[in-house]
Design a protein around this nucleic acid. Structure first.
Lengths: 262, 262
DNA sequence: ATCTATTTGTACGTATGTATT
DNA sequence: AAATACATACGTACAAATAGA
C-alpha cells in the first residue's frame, strides 16, 4: 500500500520532499485509491512505522501535515487512532485566509465579487428555503432593527448583519458559491472602521440596508427570483457605499477556525 | 515572546489543543505581533526548544503544522532555519481543493460562478494588460487553432484553452477575483470527458469558443470594457454548453501544488 | 468510581544529512 | 577539501487520554 517514491539525490525536477512530506502524500494517494470516506480509520502509528519503515517521529510529522490540511483527525485512547476527516468549511476558510494575509485585499475588491455573486445566490435560493431557515433570517434582522447607540453596538450589528449572508451562504446548493460568499462575510466581519457613525448620510444608508434585507426576505419567501436578485444587487451597492464612506480597513491577522466541525 | 496558553483540563470551550498546535498558534500570533514579513527568520530549533521548554519532536511537529499551511519554509545547512513564507497561490488552491474533495462540485456549479466572474474580470482588464501578457495570450490561442484529431490532442487543447483564463487570472488586480478564477480553471483542467468528440454540434461550439477568445483578445487590447465583458459572457455560455454536452465529470483526487514558489 | 488495556502524545539523546564558507 | 551550522531522522522510555469492565 505505501508507494513512497524513492528519491534519487540527482532529481531532475526540483521536488526533493522530506520524508514526512512523502509519507503524507503517500497516505493521501492511498485514501484516494481506497476511496476512503470521512470517519474511516487510518493504520495505527506502529503499523505505519512498520509499513513505511520509518521512525515514529517521522510518521507523526506526516500526520501533522495531514492534520493541518484538515484531512485527518487523531484521537487517543482505545479505539483511537487517525481518521479520515472531511475538511470543514471553517478550516478551509481559515486556510484560504492565510493566503490573503500578506496580500492587500481591499473592501473594493471584496465588493466587486459580492456585487457579482450575492445576487446570483439570492436568485438561486428564491422559493427554496426551508421555513426554518426563513425563520432564522427573520430573527437575525431583528438583532439590528433599532439604531446602534454606541460604537460597540454598531460593531455588533455590523457582524450580525453579515450573519444574514452567512445563513444564506450555508443554504446554498452550489457549494463553491456558498463557500466564497461565506468567506467574504467572514473577512468583512474583521474590518475595523474609523468612526463616522453620526454622519447623516451613513445612518440613512444603514436604514436602507436593513430595509433591503427585509424586502429580500419577502422575495425569497415568495420565490420571486428576479426581485431577489435585484434587491440583493441594490443592497450590495448600498453596503459598499456605506463601507467606503466609513473608510473601513481590513484587519491584519490570521483567521482561526471558529466553528469546530462535528 | 511565547504566550503559550496554559490549558486547564476543565476548559469551558472544547478547544483542547495539543502542544504542537499551541506552539504553532503561538508562533503565528508572534508573526502578527512582530509584523514579520516573508523571508524573515524564525528562531532556530534549539532556541524554540528552550523558549517553549518543549522537546524537539514537539517543536518539529509544530513547524510541520505551519509548513502544511504554507506559512513557513524550512532549510537545512548553515544560515538555514525556518522562515516566514508567503502562501503561494498554488498551495492555497491545493488546500482549497481538499475542501471540495468530499463534496460534489458539478460543472454546472463552476459555470454558475464563471458566468458571473469571468466577464467581470475581462472588463476590469480591458486596456490594462501589458504587451507581454497580450502576447502570451495570443500565443496561447495558437496552441489550439487547428481541430484536434485524437482524444489526447483534444484533452491537451482543453487544458491549453483553460490556460488562457489562468493568464488572465494572474493579471487580475483584484487578488480575490484572480484567485477564484484561477482555482476554477485548475479544477476544470481535471475533468474527464466521456467522448463525444465527433458530434457536429460539439465541434461547432468548439470553433465558436476559439473565436470568442480571439475577439476577446482584440477587445482587451483595444480597451473596450463593454465588448470584453459581453464577449466573455458569450464565451462562458458556449463553454458551458460544450462541457455539459460532453457529460464531463469532475475527477476525484487531491490537487498538488504544481507551481513551486520561488 | 476505579482499574485496566489501548492508542496517541511528549521527551530526549544520538547519529546522519545537507548546504555554506 | 574540510570545518561548520543547521535541520533531519531514529529509537526508546515514559506520560496522558479514553473506552470499557
Amino acid at each position: 500500500m505505501p508507494p513512497v517514491t524513492t528519491r534519487s539525490k540527482t532529481d531532475p525536477r526540483g521536488e526533493r520532499l522530506s520524508r514526512p512530506e512523502r509519507v503524507a502524500e503517500a497516505i493521501k494517494a492511498w485514501v484516494v485509491d481506497e476511496r476512503l470516506q470521512p470517519g474511516d480509520r487510518l493504520p495505527s502509528e506502529p503499523e505505519l512505522i512498520e509499513r513505511f519503515a520509518m521512525a515514529k517521529s517521522t510518521i507523526r510529522e506526516a500526520m501533522r501535515l495531514l492534520e493541518a490540511q484538515g484531512l485527518v483527525r487523531t484521537r487517543t485512547g482505545p479505539g483511537g487512532g487517525s481518521f479520515v476527516h472531511e475538511v470543514s468549511r471553517g478550516r478551509a476558510q481559515a486556510l484560504l485566509g492565510n493566503y490573503f494575509y500578506f496580500r492587500d485585499l481591499t473592501i473594493r475588491d471584496i465588493y466587486q465579487l459580492r456585487r457579482a455573486l450575492e445576487p446570483e445566490l439570492a436568485a438561486s435560493l428564491a422559493g427554496k428555503l426551508s421555513e426554518e431557515t426563513l425563520g432564522r433570517l427573520g430573527e437575525n434582522i431583528h438583532e439590528y432593527d433599532m439604531p446602534a447607540k454606541t460604537p460597540e453596538e454598531e460593531r455588533a450589528q455590523h457582524v450580525a448583519s453579515l450573519r444574514f449572508h452567512q445563513i444564506l451562504a450555508e443554504a446554498a446548493e452550489n457549494e463553491l458559491l456558498g463557500f466564497i460568499i461565506g468567506f467574504m462575510a467572514t473577512m468583512l466581519a474583521e474590518v475595523t472602521v474609523t468612526r463616522r457613525l453620526y454622519e447623516p448620510r451613513n445612518t440613512e444608508l444603514w436604514e436602507r440596508g436593513k430595509d433591503y434585507q427585509t424586502r429580500l426576505l419577502m422575495a425569497l419567501r415568495a420565490g420571486d427570483r428576479g426581485a431577489a436578485r435585484a434587491i440583493m444587487l441594490a443592497h450590495m451597492r448600498t453596503a459598499q457605499a456605506l463601507m467606503e464612506g466609513q473608510e473601513a480597513e481590513m484587519h491584519r491577522r490570521f483567521m482561526s477556525e471558529r466553528s469546530p466541525d462535528a
